[in-house]
Amino acid sequence: MSTSDNSRADNPMMAQARELLTQLESGNSVDAMQTISSLHFQRDQFLYQEVGKLTRSLHTAIRNFDIDTADDNAAAKDMSKMSDASDRLNYVIEKTENAANKTMDLVEDTIPISSDLGDQARSLKSEWTKLMNKQMKPDEFRALTKQMDSFLDLAAGETSKIDQNLSNILLAQDFQDLTGQVIKRVITLVKDVESNLVELVRMAGTVDHIAGIQHEEEEATIANPEEDAVGAEGPIINAEERDDVVTSQDDVDDLLSSLGF
């Protein structure tokens, strides 16, 4: 008897069933009981094998989720230390938070520099207008040349500082590549788990069929937790497809004004 081919497992079982019938007809109840327990054993073996196959495929799916550590750059090593999806998603939160903070640091550093340059330029402009209108006294002119000289030095130095900050802001966006890869892997895991769950449901159906189990319909009584109260849902990612959400600030304003705001 081949035990590796479960799809054909009913063939030897049918042979045994015929044997059982013969044994019962001839009144050989001892052999008949043995045949029955042998049939039982085969059924159990079949169920164990199905469950075993499923467990193996779930294990494989989880193992496959490990990031390939062949690449020995620091980021890949960082990721290889993480063994589950929530760690990976926390890594995404951390990376994006760091990038946001780094960007905001640089912006906060740059704003006063550019405001200061603007202030000085406006002050020079008013002096310059006096000069153009020939309303400038000689000592005022000397002060203007000095002011102009120091402004040009300042502008040259500060604009290179601004350039540097801007290119650092650009570099701070490098998280996108890493978080993108991590999120894609989590999506793959979710899909694998989903297809394994579908397989589990299919197998459960097969098991029920073999074991002759029938279920009462219970689906209708399972409450949908999303539907009780007005729960927080977070960002709506498919607003265009839904009519219970607003898609813009204008929608919010219209809704509020319709309520008398």
Partner: peptide, 29 residues
């Protein structure tokens, strides 16, 4: 907030909110 369901905005209005800005938002908004 990122919460953008109409019933949520209505609930906030009924609870006495003075303004409601949905994320992502602009400095102008």
């Amino acid at each position: 907030t990122a919460e953008a369901k109409r019933e949520q905005i209505i609930e906030a209005a009924q609870a006495g909110v003075n303004g409601y800005v949905v994320k992502p938002f602009t400095a102008q908004a």
